[in-house]
Structure formats: structure tokens, C-alpha cells
């Protein structure tokens, strides 16, 4: 996980219940996330399963998006256990998702891989933020700052935070003596 404590960039705003088929459609699951060029390809297809009312997330012919954050509603990442989903968002350049709640496996995959920060806020942020708005995420103080300067508190990560702090499940297990260093 990135050591930067302040992240700045544009937000891409989504509704409730964005599932993993929308984040990365099943026809791209033949791409293996651990093969570098296939990881790049996964990024280029990130969120390509969204309905047409959303603006295109990654522009045609490009592999990175212009967004640093996803702002979403309830139950983000529901559906499949495909780790391709957080990997695709990360490969496209997303650093953090800020949602009202997450599906369990997607949240866990973010933590275990260290590919994305899955942050929660009780505020319906996706009703307050517009596509393309510039946000500042302050990981030290657990807040997100809106374009008008308003600060919104994020829910503490709890036990998962320890795994993130360590840098993923392997580092966490090494630090806690579960596996050898």
C-alpha cells in the first residue's frame, strides 16, 4: 500500500450496489492479474460493465483513467470473489474507493492485496460529490475534503487497518510470526 498520507485527485461517482460484473465483466477474466501486461489490460477494461448512463471510465485506447477516487453508495463490489475487480481499478490508476458500505469479499481483497484503500463513510457522499470533482483524502486524520473545503469523517478501518498498516496479509503474517520472515 502507498505510504502517501494525503491523496488528491478527481472522483468518479457511482450509485449503490455496483457489482463485480460491472467493475470487470466476466469476458475479461481470462486475463491473469499477476501477469504485468494482462494487469494493464484489466485496467483498460475497468468499469466497462457499467450502464450507458455513466461517462466512460477509461477512454478508448487508453489504459489509465483520469480519476484517483471512486465515490460510491451501498454494497460496492457485491457479487463475485474475483480479485480482478480491485486489481482492475488499481491498474487503471484508482488509489481509494470511498463508499457507504462494501461487499465482504471485495473489501477483503482490497485489504489483502494492498491494491486500494476501501474507505467507508456514513455520509451519502455519492449524492454530495459530482463526477470530476477534486477531492483530498487525508489518511492520517481519516477525512475526505470536498471542493468547498468541507471535511467529511471516514469510518475507522478496525482490525483490517492492522493488515493495511503492515502492507498486506503476507507482511502482516510475517510481523505477527505466523510465517517466517
Amino acid at each position: 500500500m502507498s505510504q502517501e498520507k494525503i491523496l488528491k485527485g478527481k472522483a468518479y461517482v457511482l450509485d449503490d450496489k455496483i457489482d463485480t460484473d460491472q467493475i470487470i465483466p466476466a469476458c475479461y477474466l481470462t486475463l491473469v492479474p499477476t501477469i504485468p501486461e494482462e494487469r494493464v489490460a484489466l485496467g483498460s477494461h475497468a468499469l466497462s460493465g457499467l450502464p450507458e448512463r455513466y461517462p466512460r471510465f477509461v477512454k478508448e485506447g487508453e489504459s489509465k483513467c483520469e480519476y484517483t477516487f471512486i465515490v460510491a453508495g451501498r454494497d460496492f463490489g457485491c457479487g463475485s470473489s474475483r480479485e480482478h475487480a480491485p486489481v482492475a481499478l488499481s491498474a487503471a490508476g484508482v488509489k481509494a474507493v470511498i463508499a457507504e458500505s462494501y461487499a465482504r469479499i471485495f473489501f477483503r481483497n482490497c485489504i489483502m492485496t494492498g491494491s486500494l484503500f476501501p474507505l467507508e463513510t456514513p455520509v451519502k457522499l455519492n449524492e454530495r460529490v459530482k463526477n470530476g470533482d477534486e477531492l483530498t483524502l487525508d489518511l492520517e486524520n481519516n477525512t475526505v475534503i470536498l471542493p468547498d473545503g468541507e471535511k467529511i469523517s471516514l469510518t475507522p478501518l478496525g482490525a483490517a487497518g492492522e493488515v493495511i498498516e503492515a502492507g498486506g496479509i503476507f507482511e502482516f503474517a510475517r510481523e505477527s510470526g505466523m510465517i517466517s520472515k
Binding site: 470473489s81 481483497n109 489483502m112 503474517a173 505466523m178 510465517i179
Partner: peptide, 20 residues
């Protein structure tokens, strides 16, 4: 229960799983 690849990679090597 279902997990992602990183969790599975860990379990393949260790037989251990971190569970809430």
C-alpha cells in the same frame, strides 16, 4: 467461504487463514 487470489495464495503456502 469464498476468497480472492491473495488469500488463496497465502492459504496454499501455509494452510492458515485469517478469519473474522
Amino acid at each position: 467461504t469464498g476468497v480472492g487470489n491473495t488469500d488463496a495464495g497465502f492459504v496454499l503456502g501455509t494452510g492458515k487463514f485469517l478469519l473474522k
